[in-house]
Amino acid sequence: MDYLHVHWRHDAADAPADIYSELDDDRWEVRKVEAFPDGTLHYADDWRSTGRTGLSEVPLPSFEELAAQDALTPTVIDAEEFERMWAGATKD
């Protein structure tokens, strides 16, 4: 598995500012956490989701393709950081 954090710069209060994805070897999302500007966390996996968060319907672009977009800053993260975000989003 690969783990990715993408910071998305925008002015929309109803769109996530940070997206954390767990990716399989073909870059399909397995789990995702979206962090909104107000601190709200939503999540999705194959069985459940909250808010409007859902897994991508196509494999994620390469790191380089994401980094080439002005509004996005991707960072490779480790499983431990992703699991912290996942635990925070799925508590309760």
Rank of each mutant, 00 (worst) to 15 (best):
R9N: 06
F63D: 15
Q69D: 06
Y3V: 01
T53C: 09
P61H: 07
L72E: 02
H42T: 09
H42E: 05
T53K: 03
L55N: 13
D24Q: 11
G39Q: 14
Y20F: 13
G51C: 07
V58N: 12
E22F: 15
A35I: 05
W86D: 00
Y20K: 02
V33K: 00
D38L: 13
E80P: 01
M85S: 01
T73A: 03
T50K: 01
E34F: 07
A15H: 02
V30C: 10
D78V: 09
V58H: 02
V58C: 10
H7A: 04
A13G: 07
P61Y: 05
L4C: 01
Y20E: 00
F36Y: 03
D45L: 08
P74C: 00
I19C: 04
R52P: 02
E57V: 11
F63I: 08
V76C: 10
L23I: 07
L4Y: 01
M85G: 00
T50M: 03
K32F: 11
G39S: 10
D38C: 12
V6G: 03
L60S: 03
Y20S: 02
P61F: 04
E81F: 08
R27K: 11
K91E: 10
E80S: 09
S21V: 13
G51K: 00
A17I: 13
D25T: 08
H10P: 07
W86L: 06
D25S: 07
D78R: 04
A15Y: 03
L23P: 12
E64Y: 10
A15C: 06
M85F: 01
P16N: 14
V30Q: 12
D45Y: 08
E64H: 06
D38K: 05
L60I: 07
A35Y: 11
V33Y: 00
H7R: 07
T75S: 05
I19S: 01
R31G: 02
Y43I: 00
T40C: 14
M1C: 14
F36I: 04
E29P: 09
E57Y: 13
D70P: 05
D18I: 04
H10S: 10
E34R: 03
A35N: 12
T75E: 11
K32A: 15
P74M: 00
S56L: 15
I77T: 09
W28C: 07
A87M: 05
S21C: 03
G39I: 14
T73L: 12
F36A: 04
E64A: 08
D92Q: 09
